[in-house]
């Protein structure tokens, strides 16, 4: 596909392993000590407590609830005394997010998508598959297109992450966003942040993309806005 990155390893993996929603965890470098034993502050203080404790393998009417056995006592307060013995600190990662430095504490194999959405409340990148095939989360890492659902946070350390939120210059839209408005591309809108980020990445590589170049965009739009996406990319290219 000229001028386009092919489907990444995640895209080729998913058909053979369609059940995985956490593809990065499969390939994650083993950091068991960190990811399995680290307990975040929130987890300790906000553990749900339910009364209907049940025996190990049976499911009773209601909640499975906290483990009734004391093999793994569940800490319920922040008191250091109740923490599991093997607790170690969560690693922290710093990167530039839409031009601003951020630091997050997260397991190394946590996909950037969930770091953005669940830890940093940056919700422009959307979850659509978790395996890098729908590309609704498409964003940029050092200016290159990525699918944050299959990129580990550890791989973003000290780099520049740009999401749809970082594309406009204040109130002035990026030319591709403006072309999207001019062509009224969006329908439900859910895939469009990813579509726009993919288009921006394409135009960076190929200032005047051919139809074949545009055909190389893998992002799914279930509403079927493809014709307007094509028109908007050409419009942005013509103005570019």
């Amino acid at each position: 596909m000229p001028g386009r990155p092919g489907p990444g390893p995640a895209a080729s993996r998913s058909p053979s392993d369609p059940t995985s929603e956490n593809p990065t965890s499969e390939n994650a470098i083993s950091e068991n000590a960190i990811s399995e034993n680290a307990i975040s502050e929130n987890a300790i203080s906000e553990n749900a407590i339910s009364e209907n404790a049940i025996s190990e393998n049976a499911i009773s009417e209601n909640a499975i609830s906290e483990n009734p056995t004391s093999e793994n006592p569940t800490p319920r307060t922040r008191s250091p005394g109740t923490r599991p013995p093997k607790r170690v600190l969560m690693p922290s990662y710093s990167f530039l997010l839409n031009g601003k430095p951020v630091t997050v504490e997260a397991p190394s194999d946590m996909p950037l998508l969930w770091v953005l959405r669940d830890l940093l409340n940056v919700t422009g990148p959307k979850y659509g598959c978790g395996v890098g095939v729908c590309r609704a989360c498409t964003s940029h890492l050092d200016g290159e297109e990525i699918q944050p659902c299959v990129v580990r946070v550890a791989d973003c350390a000290d780099r520049q992450v740009t999401t749809i939120e970082g594309l406009a210059d204040g109130d002035r839209l990026h030319p591709v966003q403006q072309a999207w408005l001019d062509c009224d591309v969006a329908q439900c809108g859910f895939c469009q942040p990813g579509q726009i980020m993919a288009a921006v990445a394409l135009l960076k590589k190929t200032s005047h993309p051919t139809d074949a170049d545009i055909d190389g965009i893998e992002n799914v739009c279930r509403c079927g806005t493809y014709s307007r996406i094509r028109e908007a990319i050409k419009k942005a290219a013509a103005q570019g």
Partner: peptide
């Protein structure tokens, strides 16, 4: 249909608040 579940490992994982049927 669910026959049985052993949720001990899951509940011991970091960041997990609840496991319910």
């Amino acid at each position: 249909k669910l026959v049985s579940v052993d949720s001990r490992a899951a509940r011991a994982m970091p960041g997990v608040h609840a496991v319910v049927k």
